[in-house]
């Protein structure tokens, strides 16, 4: 017990700011990220996807007549067999995030730069958070660029500028996409601490992403059947089952992303959950929600994404602090 409190005192008595040198790490890592071949490949891929999907969406939209949210449709309209741009982002963003971070820490070990790095007057905190922030900033930079390209293309192909509300909705959308990337960034960072081999870390990250993107939906359905079976067919039973299914499926960051993006880009969506006829009383169907109501609708999703990011990052932080430096 005494040893413990001494330990605590030691930790709390640590001199100086834990963020000393963090910006040096951020700038160096961002420069690395932006000049690396793997980022160039992914950027090219994303830009091509953006141009392709927006072009085909514009082709579709031209014939669709007047729509108050024409611009938002650019992001959500797909033409067979291509999915919409938001659908593409659903897997391109995790891919970019994983590519940015899967060798963050184990790369330093493998290059044998870790001991030289940590013998500089910085804490491990600065190194880890600096790397994470650099990844997040890179992601934000890339996504913002693509966002601007699409808006520009939209003006050219549709011939109308976006309205103020559309721009506001699109900015929120950008923010959600960046936070969605943040989760995968922290997952990949965690695995880069856990696994010595960058390839293992990359594969593990991709496995987790595939699990949530593809299998989690099925597992959620299965669990729902087991945990909340509909035996007789009462309304309560059915409601309970649907609610549980929704709750389970929202464990997946992909569901959170899709829900949030849909609510933002489609103002006609009034609820992301189960709506009972009683609740619809007095509602004017078919009218779009104002922006603040849409944001309110997805507020839990956004906080959920951020909370998960922080949680996973914190886990990685603890593991990294305990890691012995000598290989």
């Amino acid at each position: 017990m005494a040893a413990r409190s001494e330990e605590m005192a030691r930790v709390s008595a640590r001199e100086g700011s834990p963020w000393t040198g963090m910006w040096a790490v951020v700038w160096k890592e961002m420069a690395d990220n932006l000049t690396s071949v793997r980022m160039s490949i992914l950027e090219t891929l994303t830009v091509l996807t953006a141009i392709g999907t927006v072009y085909s969406a514009a082709q579709n939209l031209r014939s669709s007549g007047r729509d108050p949210f024409l611009f938002l449709r650019l992001f959500t309209t797909g033409r067979e067999p291509l999915p919409a741009f938001v659908g593409f982002l659903g897997f391109l963003v995790p891919l970019i995030a994983i590519a940015l971070a899967f060798d963050a820490i184990n790369g330093e070990f493998n290059r044998r730069t870790i001991s030289r790095l940590l013998s500089q007057p910085i804490y491990r905190d600065a190194l880890l958070l600096g790397k994470f922030l650099a990844g997040l900033f890179t992601l934000a930079l890339v996504l913002s660029t693509i966002w601007l390209i699409i808006v520009g293309l939209g003006i050219v192909t549709l011939g109308v500028p976006p309205s103020g509300e559309e721009v506001a909705r699109l900015l929120w959308f950008l923010l959600v996409v960046i936070f969605y990337g943040g989760i995968w960034l922290s997952v990949a960072t965690l695995f880069s601490i856990l696994f010595r081999q960058p390839a293992t870390a990359a594969l593990a990250s991709i496995a987790v992403w595939l699990f949530f993107a593809i299998f989690w939906g099925m597992i959620a359905d299965l669990l729902t059947q087991v945990l909340a079976p509909v035996r007789v067919g009462y309304l309560e039973e059915i409601v309970r089952q649907v609610r549980l299914n929704l709750a389970l499926s929202r464990i997946s960051p992909n569901t959170l992303y899709v829900d949030a993006v849909l609510a933002l880009l489609n103002p006609n969506i009034r609820s992301l959950g189960l709506v009972l006829p009683v609740q619809l009383e007095g509602a004017i169907l078919g009218t779009p929600l104002p922006l603040d109501q849409s944001v309110l609708l997805i507020w839990p999703h956004i906080t959920g994404l951020i909370a998960a990011t922080i949680l996973i990052f914190a886990l990685g932080y603890v593991l990294f602090q305990r890691r012995e430096i000598r290989a």
Binding site: R112, S119, P121
Partner: peptide, 24 residues
């Protein structure tokens, strides 16, 4: 060095056995 690692590491240089640099 446990309590004041920043001051120590600012004044002490370390040349590790496994010396690595950023190759690019």
């Amino acid at each position: 060095p446990v309590r004041q690692p920043l001051s120590v590491k600012a004044r002490v240089g370390y040349l590790p056995e496994q010396l690595g640099f950023y190759e690019n």
